[in-house]
Nucleic acid binder design. Structure first.
Lengths: 222, 222
DNA sequence: AACAATTATTAAAAATTTTTCATTTTTTAT
DNA sequence: ATAAAAAATGAAAAATTTTTAATAATTGTT
């Protein structure tokens, strides 16, 4: 889970980052708007946490621009103003939720989970790098072309994308992707990973699935 | 397109119904909340148009209950109050849009289309009768069981559901579902329809796909 | 460097899905 | 009622996907 925090109050930003990391989330902090926009457009996040009031480019402005760039990443705004008018504005610019300062970290966690749950249940594609997995058509789309993945390869890639940057064992894949109550004595997983790797490399020329010797696989975007 | 209008001002309700029907939409009107809740829970609509202020159970209360029942049908609220506070409330209760009275029918149409476009692009299942087609898992779910559909059967059923209640010819299906630039000399379509019919009947004991002699097929829910 | 464990590769078997085709049944018009 | 057209059916061929299994290559440890 990659979160981008945009917050100019260094102390608050760093404390949030620390708390998120203790929850096992990956965190990138931007202290002002210009950097934030660059960061957000250059990598994929699962969530943007934007402070409303930051110097020069405000959080709401970032929100607006992100949506204009057709980026649907969930956005939560942090606001010192409890002013209702601003909340309306937030929704109109495409924010998914807002949290009024001061807040507890528990509240932030709860809001994030609610937003992500909602987002995930209506998500129709998963983006990574400059590619995209269409969850409805089961197709893998690169800038150059789009191919249809067979069922198991689709399910496998979907699982990898939902568990990016963490090691997944063959046993886990058997349970979660193949829905097997046991780990088979054969190498189905290995072979399907090979097939998926071939397609991913053919379409993107990159190696997304790394092997962690003795542990399993890990899906990395870079 | 089935729309449920909940509006106590009989004159307005009937005028809306008439306008919608001239646009080719199907319309059911409820004049008060209790009936509305029953109607909404017993059949599937593509859109709910709720007046905020109706006697006993208000539109916003209906909205809230519909969402509590895990029904994701798009909802547009009609409100006489331009009060901002209420708009916030509407979004919080899961409405998709609101229209401030007085309004023109053109405005209603425009809002409806915007909401439906948005909804369709993030929809992860299509409901019909007491069944549901999961667009991501490609499964067909009845109250009793859930089965996985093979690719072509899934695409075919999806197309039928998106074109409910209208006749679709074999030629159209070849183009739209099979993406063939020509109509093949074989009966692929017929055979796939047969397979889909078998699964639908097995799981629901109903015959959804009727044949229109010389014309094509029609998908009917009832 | 050598060994064992793990992973990758290759090819074929098994299972499933998709398509074809011949035949039967149904529908409509005469 | 009958013939012609259209649709349904059954079964097998073709194509694709999934799984298995044997072998090769790689990795980590001693």
């Amino acid at each position: 889970m990659n979160i981008c925090i945009v917050e100019d109050e260094k102390q608050l930003a760093d404390s949030l980052k620390k708390s998120f990391e203790s929850e096992g989330y990956n965190c990138i902090v931007c202290y002002e708007g210009e950097t934030a926009l660059k960061t957000i457009s250059s990598q994929t996040f699962d969530l943007l946490l934007l402070d409303w009031r930051i110097p020069k480019i405000s959080g709401i402005e970032i929100c607006k621009r992100v949506r204009e760039a057709n980026n649907q990443t969930p956005i939560i705004l942090l606001t010192a103003l409890s002013d209702i008018k601003n909340k309306i504005e937030a929704f109109n610019y495409g924010a998914d939720d807002y949290i009024t300062k001061p807040f507890s970290f528990e509240e932030v966690l709860a809001r994030i989970n609610a937003v992500l749950r909602r987002y995930k249940s209506v998500q129709s594609s998963i983006e990574f790098d400059d590619m995209s997995l269409n969850l409805i058509g089961h197709t893998l789309k690169a800038p150059s072309e789009e191919i249809k993945l067979p069922e198991m390869e689709f399910e496998l890639l979907k699982y990898f994308l939902e568990n990016r940057a963490s090691i997944v064992s063959r046993e886990t894949l058997c349970e979660e992707v193949w829905k097997l109550p046991f780990t088979p004595s054969t190498n189905v997983v290995d072979v399907t990973v090979k097939h998926l790797r071939e397609k991913l490399e053919e379409i993107s020329d990159k190696k997304y699935i790394k092997t962690v010797y003795g542990e399993g696989y890990i899906f990395i975007t870079e």
